[in-house]
Amino acid sequence: MMGEFDAIRPYDDAEVPAVLARLLSDPAFLDILTHFRFPRQAKTFGWLLKPLIARRLRREFKDVTNVATLQDKVEFYVDHTIDRATDGVTYTGVEQFKSGSAYLFLANHRDIVMDPAFVNYAVYHAGLPTPRIAIGDNLLQKPFVSDLMRLNKSFIVHRSLVGRREKLASYQLLSAYINHSIRHDCASIWIAQAEGRAKDGDDRTDSAILKMFHMSRKDEPFGETIKALNLTPVSISYEYDPCDQAKARELYIRATKGAYNKAPGEDDVSIAQGITGYKGRVHINFAPPITELFEDTKQLAIEIDRQILGGYRLFPVHYLAYAQWADADPELQVPAAADVFPAAELEKARAEWLRRLRECPVEQRPFLVLQYATPVRNQYRVKAGLSL
């Protein structure tokens, strides 16, 4: 029997063996793995390496018959990638979660793959079930990517629909699925606070997303629906963004030409850069679930922003960028980096920040500064009780 959520839901345990078998014989998937594992030899010896990698993976995953076992296996690779590309991951707020409860993690959005991966990492290492992850269909161009993501608890958000009626039906289904997942399946959800990454470092909640949560529960007051979902604002802070130069370039082109057209395969490059690029330290903060009853999406969005921006961890680089930002707010009492951080930590950050500035074309530099300075302004506005 076709379930109402079959078009978007993650794969369930019974589907795992067949999907794994399909993945491990997909030439495009094996090609990417070969290039990732053996970047130098892949061009010349790819034909030889591909079957070897496939055989090794089949052996390694032969006993995997459900999603939980798969995630245990994958966690080893995730931890390895995190070790290689960060100076450590810290998280706060996980102790408040109760096992047997499900949460709607609403997070700021800076990186396509790593945002949900870091939330998963924090939740997994706290010994709790990992959330189901919302992912836009614009990122699922290749069948193996869709298989891979749905195996790893991802569900699909249809963003590429054009017609108003189709969009509405898609949001309705998404709303029903999120409510069903939390209330009925007792399975948590991760979703970004807005469509697309905050490339200028300005993390804001899109009230259309909050409206979508309520769409399938119109018979219930808005505030009650939100309360029942255990909506938990999440702040993900990267010390350094591996895609910051690409974002500065895009912001510069938008500012000077009025529009920016993505090149084919640009998302794939961002994904690879985001996974493997150096991030410095990473911090994830989980605010308490929202229990206050909000009458409308605007008021709720303001409160979520307050929690996300207030819970964001500012690193030395953020203060260094703020100090040279042309749009810094003189009214805000922002201390100098030297008054907040020890000298050795600050020195290391200054060297890395200057390196990034040097790598950035002069005309694009203000947009690099903007990305790192904006979270400082936002957090100090929250601290001062000013409107955002």
Rank of each mutant, 00 (worst) to 15 (best):
F5V: 03
R9A: 06
Y11C: 02
Y11A: 02
V16I: 11
P17F: 02
A18C: 00
L23M: 05
P27E: 01
F29K: 12
L30Q: 09
I32V: 14
I32S: 03
F45C: 15
F45I: 12
G46H: 05
I53C: 08
R56P: 06
L57C: 06
L57E: 08
L57N: 08
R58P: 08
N66R: 11
V67W: 04
V67K: 07
F76R: 15
A85K: 08
A85N: 02
G88C: 02
Y91W: 15
Q96W: 02
S99V: 09
S101K: 15
A102N: 09
L104G: 14
L104F: 09
A107Y: 04
N108T: 11
D111G: 03
V113P: 04
P116A: 06
A117I: 10
H125N: 12
H125E: 03
A126W: 03
G127W: 00
N138P: 08
L139V: 02
F144C: 05
V157P: 09
R159F: 07
S160E: 15
G163K: 15
K167V: 14
L168T: 15
L174F: 04
A176K: 14
Y177K: 12
I178L: 13
H180F: 00
I182S: 04
H184I: 14
I189H: 10
Q193N: 13
D200W: 02
G201K: 13
R204C: 10
K211H: 14
M215P: 13
P221E: 07
P221F: 07
A228M: 13
L229Y: 07
N230V: 08
V234S: 12
S235R: 12
E239P: 04
C243W: 03
A255V: 11
P264G: 11
P264M: 01
G265N: 05
V282N: 01
H283E: 04
I284S: 02
N285K: 15
E292D: 05
L293E: 10
F294S: 09
E303Q: 15
R306Q: 14
I308T: 11
L320W: 06
A321P: 09
Y322A: 13
A323Q: 09
A326E: 06
A326Q: 15
E331R: 14
Q333A: 12
Q333L: 06
Q333V: 07
A338V: 13
E347I: 04
E347M: 07
L354N: 14
R358I: 07
R358H: 11
C360E: 00
C360D: 01
C360S: 09
V362C: 05
E363R: 11
L368D: 00
L370W: 00
A373I: 04
P375R: 09
Y380I: 03
K383W: 02
S387D: 11
